[in-house]
Amino acid sequence: MKCQSCTKRAATVHYTEISDNKESREIHLCEDCYNQQKPGGSADILGLISGAFSGAGRPADDPGALTCPNCGLTYAAFRQRGRLGCPQCWETFSEPLTALLEKIHNGGTRHVGKSPFGDGPEGGASTAADRSAEREIVALRRKLTDAIKGENYELAASLRDALKQAEERAADARAEARADAARSRGPASGGTETSP
């Protein structure tokens, strides 16, 4: 497929543009023409980042102005270079990133796998409660994946409920921890010691 703009090079960036009157239009551009319209680099990931907005109603829902409170990276800057600034960017940009992850990881948006929180006494600096909550969530998700794979839908349904509850509990705990941190240290959250 040729680029709609220069009509010479192959189109490698594809997305759906939705106008104010809700009419959608498919856009197919080569990387050069895309970059002229939206300044950016040239790696594959950047095409994916743009592709992740397919049907998302750009630019009305554009998250470009989101800024990481820890490292100062904006989502617009991430879009240009395809690299995040710090671990906390993952929390700050979690919503737009989820759409992107779906494209990159073939539908995968949630972690199913090991966690760094073993039983050793020298674990990370997060609290024991955090560690156990995160371990529980990941373990439940793994069981759920296995249950769906084994077509055990009854078990999957109960695991899905348990997972939802565990995620809600963890989110509440995180919100509480953030509020505590804000009270004691100012607006930056996440227990980081770097400045923007």
Binding site: L84, L97, L100, L101, P116, F117, G123, E134, V138, E167
Partner: peptide, 26 residues
């Protein structure tokens, strides 16, 4: 992991610089 404070979230797994490596990081 017993010696280092590894960046991890139950939602995204091991947090990495590039979104192509996040999750298991494997």
């Amino acid at each position: 992991a017993r010696r280092l404070d590894v960046a991890f979230s139950s939602r995204f797994g091991y947090l990495t610089c590039c979104p192509t490596n996040v999750g298991t990081g494997l």
